[in-house]
């Protein structure tokens, strides 16, 4: 329990990850599914960012002279977060485009209804 409080960023991140994951899995509304995906990925970035941050140290940007390496925070998690953001932006764009296409065909964003309509048309 104590560990959860000390690592409160990580705890929050894991809870958010769970919320996002379940939304992506269980929501019927496709747009809410995408939002769930966004929450899930952001939770991972929060986790990474909190890992890289070290209390009382500088951002790893050179200003004037090079200080000792121990004066800076860990820049690798930030790099990973940036890469991750690029990935999730493209995935989100792709999902939204696909949802738009489905909406044009079926006039709804409810996935159960879409599946049912597709089955009725019998064009599976």
């Amino acid at each position: 329990m104590e560990h959860l409080l000390i690592n409160h960023y990580e705890t929050a991140a894991v809870i958010l990850f769970g919320i996002g994951f379940l939304n992506l899995l269980l929501q019927n509304n496709l747009v809410k599914k995408v939002i769930g995906f966004g929450v899930m990925d952001s939770a991972v970035y929060l986790f990474l960012a909190s890992q890289g941050y070290i209390e009382g140290r500088m951002a790893p940007i050179l200003v004037g002279e090079v200080a000792h390496a121990a004066d800076y925070i860990n820049p690798i998690p930030a790099g990973l977060v940036l890469t991750g953001i690029v990935v999730s932006v493209s995935v989100t764009a792709f999902s939204l485009a696909l949802i738009q296409r489905l909406y044009q065909k079926y006039q709804t964003v409810n996935f159960d209804e879409i599946v049912q309509l597709a089955r009725q048309k019998g064009d599976e």
């Binding site: 992506l24 899995l25 496709l30 990925d41 995935v91 792709f94 999902s95």
Partner: peptide, 22 residues
């Protein structure tokens, strides 16, 4: 329509999978 619905299903499962890997 069939491929669009199939893609949506595939995309959702894939995203769940890559979220867990990440």
């Amino acid at each position: 329509s069939a491929t669009l619905v199939a893609t949506m299903r595939y995309l959702i499962m894939s995203l769940l999978g890559s979220g867990l890997v990440l």
